[in-house]
């Protein structure tokens, strides 16, 4: 036969170090507190979060020895939950929350072009390898390639700066690419994401 132990007794036991007393208290009042929170917020996940935060406060207060309302455990917990519900609504009114539906996903409209962290790391590695390969090119080819690819200059501008004809600049670019491909193939280097 199960003996009903009063909340105040369980609280005392818990303060004295009996963790099972807390489990009994939580299970005893679980549905009432959850129901109360759910009736205000109308969302199961938020209910779960507020329930958790409520009991974190309860645990802290009891462990600190700051609880003094013996015999009124449930109203006290309800008041904590009520305050947290108000906090929740304050937060959501400051930052309105939008939830998509089955037919509309916000991420089809709003997108982030940035690479994810793994792709970014791979890209950095490729850029680094490519720089090493470019360093191996003859100076005239390297110069044209850097001006064309990294500085986005036209072949006309390159020819003016380097003092060679456009055709020569084009030829150096062509040889730079051929040489890069040769090195890549020779050493079996993979430069793809």
């Amino acid at each position: 036969m199960e003996v009903f132990v009063d909340d105040s007794v369980l609280i005392k036991k818990y303060i004295d170090g009996d963790e099972r007393a807390l489990a009994t208290l939580i299970n005893r009042h679980n549905s009432r507190i959850s129901g109360f929170i759910y009736s205000k917020v109308g969302n199961r996940n938020i209910t779960e979060d507020i329930f958790q935060d409520t009991f974190i406060k309860v645990i802290k207060t009891l462990k600190r020895g700051a609880y003094s309302e013996e015999g009124k455990f449930l109203p006290w917990v309800m008041r904590i939950a009520h305050n947290l519900i108000i906090d929740h609504f304050r937060k959501t009114s400051r930052m309105p929350r939008f939830e998509g539906s089955d037919t509309f996903n916000i991420f089809t409209v709003v997108s982030d072009d940035k690479l994810d962290i793994e792709s970014q790391l791979i890209k950095n590695q490729i850029d680094c390898d490519l720089n090493l390969l470019i360093e191996e090119l003859p100076n005239d080819q390297k110069q044209v390639l850097i001006m064309r690819i990294y500085k986005d200059m036209s072949f006309k501008e390159i020819s003016e700066i380097t003092g060679v004809s456009i055709n020569t600049a084009l030829g150096r670019m062509r040889y730079a690419l051929i040489n890069l491909r040769k090195v890549i193939e020779k050493h079996n280097i993979a430069l793809t994401m």
Binding site: N30, S34, I59
Partner: peptide
């Protein structure tokens, strides 16, 4: 409506 077992375990 009841808090899930996982939440209670966390607490």
């Amino acid at each position: 409506i009841k808090a899930q077992k996982g939440t209670i375990e966390f607490l």
